[in-house]
C-alpha cells in the first residue's frame, strides 16, 4: 500500500460499521458519565440544610451525597473496564478485519 486511498477506506462497509459503532458507544457513555458527574455539583450546590435529602445519613455518618460522590469513582472505573472489554471485542476486531481486507485487496 504505497499510497493509501482514504476515501476508499471511508466508503468501506467495515469502516462504516466501525465508525458508527464507535461513535454510538463513545458519545453515549461520555454523555452518560458527564451528566452523572454534573449531577454532583448541581446537587451539592443545592444542598444547604441539614434536613435536605442529600444530607440524609445512609451508612453510619456517611450522607447520601457522599455516596453519590463515591459512586463517581465506581462509574468511572466501570466505564473504563467496560470500554476495554467492548473495544477488545468489537472495535479492535473490526479494525483488524478492515486492515486485513485492505491488505488482501486485489
Amino acid at each position: 500500500m504505497a499510497q493509501v486511498d482514504y476515501s476508499e477506506i471511508a466508503r468501506h462497509p467495515k469502516f462504516r460499521e466501525l465508525s458508527r459503532k464507535k461513535v454510538r458507544f463513545l458519545v453515549g457513555w461520555w454523555l452518560f458519565s458527564t451528566i452523572f458527574y454534573f449531577g454532583l455539583p448541581i446537587w451539592a450546590g443545592n444542598t444547604t440544610l441539614q434536613s435536605d435529602v442529600g444530607n440524609m445519613k445512609v451508612i453510619g455518618n456517611v450522607p447520601l451525597l457522599y455516596l453519590y460522590a463515591l459512586a463517581q469513582y465506581a462509574l468511572s472505573i466501570a466505564i473504563a473496564l467496560y470500554y476495554t472489554y467492548w473495544a477488545n471485542k468489537y472495535a479492535d476486531r473490526l479494525t483488524e478485519e478492515l486492515l486485513r481486507d485492505l491488505r488482501t485487496k486485489p
Binding site: 458527564t34 458527574y37 454534573f38 454532583l40 455539583p41 448541581i42 451539592a44 450546590g45 443545592n46 444542598t47 444547604t48 441539614q50 442529600g54 444530607n55 445519613k57 455518618n61 456517611v62 450522607p63 451525597l65 457522599y66
Partner: peptide, 28 residues
C-alpha cells in the same frame, strides 16, 4: 444543628451552585 455532621456535608468551601458547576467544568 449537628456541626460535626455538617463537616461531611457540602457548602463549607464552595458557595452556591454556580461556583460548584464552574469548578466542575474546569476539573472535568
Amino acid at each position: 444543628l449537628d456541626y460535626g455532621q455538617r463537616y461531611l456535608e457540602p457548602g463549607l468551601f464552595l458557595h452556591g451552585v454556580w461556583d460548584q458547576i464552574s469548578l466542575g467544568m474546569a476539573v472535568c
